[in-house]
Structure formats: structure tokens, C-alpha cells
């Protein structure tokens, strides 16, 4: 299945969870925030929250800024 990840197309296995996606991307869940279809997903739900075709996922983190 295909999702939009940070504005780009990404192909994932069916029923991938957010935890699986973060692991696939080598991202430490503690350093990021995940938005699924503009809703913020709480870290406690990363395991159970599965993704479906055409979902839009944004993975955000803090960077240097003024």
C-alpha cells in the first residue's frame, strides 16, 4: 500500500503500525511527533495504530531555530 510520508510517496506493507514505520525509518519514537491525517497520535498508541492506503503521515521533530 502507498501512504504520503512527509509529503512524499512511501510504499509500506499492508496494516503496518506506526511503531513499525518508525522502526523501518530508524527513528527513535521519543524524539519525534507523529501526525496521522492531521491528528496527533499519542506515543502510547503507536503499536495499535495501523496505517491504511492513502494515509497522510507527518513525522516532526525539533530542530535549531530562533
Amino acid at each position: 500500500m502507498n501512504i504520503r510520508l512527509n509529503g512524499s510517496e512511501k510504499t509500506l506493507k499492508e496494516f503496518s503500525s506506526i511503531s513499525a514505520l518508525l522502526q523501518d525509518l530508524s527513528l527513535n519514537p521519543k524524539t519525534v511527533v507523529v501526525e496521522l491525517n492531521t491528528e496527533i497520535i499519542q506515543p502510547g498508541s503507536y503499536d495499535e495504530q495501523t496505517l491504511t492506503e492513502n494515509d497522510s503521515v507527518e513525522i516532526i521533530r525539533f530542530v535549531g531555530g530562533g
Binding site: N28, F62, V63
Partner: peptide, 19 residues
């Protein structure tokens, strides 16, 4: 200290300002 929020650079997963 101020920080900004941006999309994660997926090519650089360990680049974390907080650490």
C-alpha cells in the same frame, strides 16, 4: 532556548537537537 519544528530529515534519523 528556542527551538523550531520541522519534518524529520529521513536521510538523517539520528539528528536530534534535544540529545
Amino acid at each position: 532556548v528556542t527551538v523550531a519544528l520541522r519534518r524529520v530529515d529521513l536521510t538523517n534519523p539520528d539528528d536530534d537537537i534535544m540529545s
